[in-house]
């Protein structure tokens, strides 16, 4: 099984079909990242498409010595999402969309508690700053190391660790408050 770097090197050399292998491996993690950030499945799918178009368009800029493919991929993903956010402002109604999504998919009475908990968690996550939320998502859902996240966000590892701690502290406080008011 070729590594990500080998696949990307092939794409750079003109074997565009190898991009399909990278797509297979990364389309779900990327979709999950966008979905967690936007709560909008349609926008998330569009953004995945934009990222792979950009990989193709800027394939010559990829340098494996600069870090892992995942780092480069999520750097592109972050920029694509920021561009999209500025263009569409779709984050405005993020929590509404998410609520609808959860309700439509969970229609048994037994799921009520889980659904409520998920909504509280979503609300608590929305209380974080965008950068904190992004850091937590990349770490917790995309499984990236703090070193990789630091490379993606172009900052020091210590900054990422501090950000994770503060995000967790904010989450703890808002989750407690939400549970109390529920």
């Amino acid at each position: 099984m070729p590594s990500d770097n080998e696949l990307m090197a092939a794409v750079k050399n003109g074997d565009l079909e190898k991009l399909a292998d990278l797509y297979e491996k990364y389309n779900r993690p990327l979709f999950a990242f966008f979905y967690k950030m936007t709560s909008d499945p349609q926008a998330s799918e569009d953004l995945v498409q934009v990222v792979f178009c950009k990989i193709l368009a800027y394939r010559d800029r990829y340098r494996d010595k600069d870090g892992t493919f995942a780092v480069w991929l999520f750097q592109i993903a972050r920029n694509a999402r920021i561009d999209h956010y500025h263009k569409e402002k779709f984050l405005k109604n993020a929590s509404d969309v998410d609520e609808l999504e959860i309700k439509s998919d969970s229609d048994t009475a037994g799921d009520y508690e889980r659904r409520e908990k998920a909504l509280r968690m979503r609300e608590a996550l929305n209380g974080l700053t965008e950068v904190q939320r992004e850091t937590l998502i990349l770490s917790r859902f995309n499984g990236l190391s703090y070193e990789e996240i630091a490379a993606i966000m172009n900052c020091r590892v210590g900054t990422i660790k501090a950000r994770v701690f503060r995000a967790m502290e904010t989450l703890r406080e808002s989750f407690r408050a939400l549970e109390k008011s529920a």
Partner: peptide, 22 residues
């Protein structure tokens, strides 16, 4: 609890669009 939050599966159309673009 953060890891438990569910993410829907992307639609089949997403992969079809990727294939067409490629």
């Amino acid at each position: 609890a953060l890891a438990e939050e569910r993410v829907p599966e992307p639609s089949e159309a997403m992969s079809v669009r990727f294939r067409q673009a490629l």
